[in-house]
């Protein structure tokens, strides 16, 4: 595809997991760093426990709000099966970060469909640069179960050139004031894993 200077980050998960907030923070960081930015996602019906994906693109000039097929530089997946669903959108040399969480949809309890229990094995075979972390567990360790999102952003930040302080500034503005310290700690924790 034409514009090699555009960085493509695909953030995926299940409705209600916080995909949209994560992509919002990444977009803000990219804008603050002086980029043209576009971000696209679909609201509405899909948010009721369905598949959610958010495209974030940044660079000197971004045209389409959608990442071309197979052109994601980074995929951040909030859930294992969703990581597998979207993996083919990753460039062969791209980075994937997977939150080690399993959300089984009701449809997988019938006879027709099964949850892919071997998702992580399949991803390991496919993807050269794969990082798996259990953000839920790390969040519990930090004493607050709601930090998974920020921990994953910490991991995501390592794949980009932006200064860590730029991320911290944006996180400070986007999270509830009382939780700023905890979220910054979570962000650093995500960077250290």
């Amino acid at each position: 595809m034409s514009n090699n200077k555009t960085i493509n980050v695909l953030i995926v998960g299940v409705g209600g997991q916080g995909v949209l907030l994560a992509s919002q923070i990444l977009s803000d960081v990219a804008l603050q760093a002086g980029n043209d930015v576009k971000k696209s996602e679909v609201h509405g019906m899909s948010q009721r426990g369905g598949v959610v994906s958010s495209h974030v693109r940044f660079g000197p000039k971004v045209y389409s709000p959608l990442i071309p097929n197979g052109q994601a530089d980074v995929i951040l997946a909030f859930e294992r099966a969703e990581a597998l669903r979207w993996a083919h959108e990753l460039k062969p040399d791209g980075n994937m970060i997977v939150n080690d969480q399993k959300l089984i949809p009701p449809i997988a309890s019938g006879t027709q469909y099964q949850y892919p229990d071997d998702a992580l094995d399949q991803l390991t075979d496919k993807i050269k640069s794969l990082k798996v972390l259990n953000a839920g567990q790390i969040s519990e360790e930090l004493g607050n179960p709601r930090l998974a999102n920020t921990i994953l952003l910490g991991a995501l930040s390592l794949t980009q050139k932006f200064e860590a302080d730029l991320w911290r500034d944006v996180i400070k503005r986007r999270v509830p004031p009382k939780t700023i310290d905890l979220n910054l700690k979570a962000f650093d924790e995500g960077r250290s894993r």
Binding site: M1, V14, G15, M45, S46, Q47, R48, G49, G50, V51, N69, G70, Q71, A81, E82, L84, R85, A87, H88, L90, P92, P105, P106, I107, A108, Y113, Q114, Y115, P116, A119, Q122, K126, I127
Partner: peptide
Amino acid sequence: PVVEEMLEAASVMPRPPVLC
């Protein structure tokens, strides 16, 4: 068209939206 190498798509169960 530039033929670019692409990772193979996996078959994953659908995840239709559901009542809460």
